[in-house]
Simulated assay, not measured.
Amino acid sequence: MSCQAVAGLPLVDAVTPAVLVLAGPVARDEVPGLCDDVRALLRRSGTRIVVCDVGGLGPPGLAAVDLLARLELTARRAGGLIRLRDPDPVLRSLLRFVGLRIQMEGEVEEREPALGVEEEVEPGQPSV
């Protein structure tokens, strides 16, 4: 058996995140099934991210915030996280207001500052 070298870079199959489309207002009894869907997508796709398309979720409110909080918790318990696609600006504000830091598609990931890095202080100002 012989093997011939191929010129160029090897073809790499990029791993794309799994997508869960949330359409219409979601009833409270549908939430456990959607949590199961998130777990299954994380397991099947082999990625750490499930993209939740929330463009058609309906009017933003506390029910939507509760749903997304439960989906994020489910994903984290399964070793992943969710990322929102096409969120309404009001939904973004509500998530920030209640303190949920769910990633949004197209935004730079927020990270903690590096350990041991200190900010420069102007002469004459007390250091913190």
Rank of each mutant, 00 (worst) to 15 (best):
R76V: 04
P60T: 06
T47R: 12
G33F: 15
V31P: 07
C35R: 14
E107L: 05
A18G: 10
L84D: 04
A69E: 09
E110A: 07
R70V: 05
Q125T: 14
D29T: 14
P32D: 11
V108R: 10
D37N: 10
A75C: 10
L115S: 08
L71V: 03
T16P: 04
A14V: 08
Q125N: 11
C52D: 01
R96A: 09
E112H: 12
A40C: 10
R77N: 12
G106R: 09
L42S: 02
R77F: 11
R101M: 06
V50E: 02
G99K: 02
E120D: 08
P17I: 04
R28Y: 13
G116A: 07
D29Y: 12
V108A: 10
R76C: 04
L94Q: 02
P113A: 06
V21E: 11
D53A: 10
L20W: 08
L71S: 00
L57S: 03
E112M: 13
G56R: 13
R101S: 07
V19P: 06
V98Q: 05
G106I: 05
A7L: 13
T74Y: 01
V51I: 14
D37C: 11
L81I: 00
A7V: 13
E72G: 03
V12S: 03
A114P: 13
L11S: 03
V90N: 00
R111M: 11
S93G: 03
R28T: 15
A5T: 06
T74H: 01
P113V: 02
E107T: 03
R77K: 12
A114H: 12
A40E: 14
V121E: 13
I82S: 00
G33S: 13
R83G: 03
A23W: 08
A64G: 01
L95C: 00
E30I: 05
Q125L: 15
L20C: 01
A27P: 03
A40G: 00
G124S: 12
L91Q: 06
V38I: 15
G106N: 05
L100A: 05
E122F: 15
V21A: 12
V51Q: 02
G80S: 00
